[in-house]
């Protein structure tokens, strides 16, 4: 792998995925859609961590460990985020982020 594919290619894929996720998180109205964008971003971060680990210091576990912690955080975030979406849906009967504006002046 490291002989055939230069590190830049992997980083490019990861950066592109991050930007796709960012666009999704910033522009979708559906709250679940926003959450999915965030998940994409976290995944791209993980690709970066694993790629740097593999290409630069495969003998140490730091990169993989960080990726695992990111996965943990992503799982926790998904659970709490989706619970919030369900709670909001129950009170406002909407899943669109811009309809939940009762705090707006």
């Amino acid at each position: 792998m490291i002989n055939a594919v230069p590190l830049e290619w992997v980083l490019t894929v990861s950066a592109a995925l991050f930007c796709i996720g960012l666009f999704g998180a910033l522009s979708r109205r559906n709250m679940v859609g926003i959450l999915m964008g965030v998940e994409l971003m976290l995944n791209s971060v993980n690709i970066n961590l694993v790629a740097f680990w593999r290409y630069l210091e495969p003998r140490f576990i730091t990169g993989q460990t960080f990726a695992l912690f990111v996965i943990t955080v992503a799982a926790a975030e998904a659970a709490v985020g989706l619970a919030m979406i369900i709670a909001i849906y129950r009170n406002w009967a909407t899943v669109n982020a811009d309809d939940v504006d009762s705090m707006k002046g």
């Binding site: 894929v13 592109a16 796709i20 996720g21 999704g24 859609g33 999915m36 964008g37």
Partner: peptide
């Protein structure tokens, strides 16, 4: 990337 684009 293709699946990512489709997601959004």
């Amino acid at each position: 990337l293709g699946a990512g684009v489709m997601v959004v």
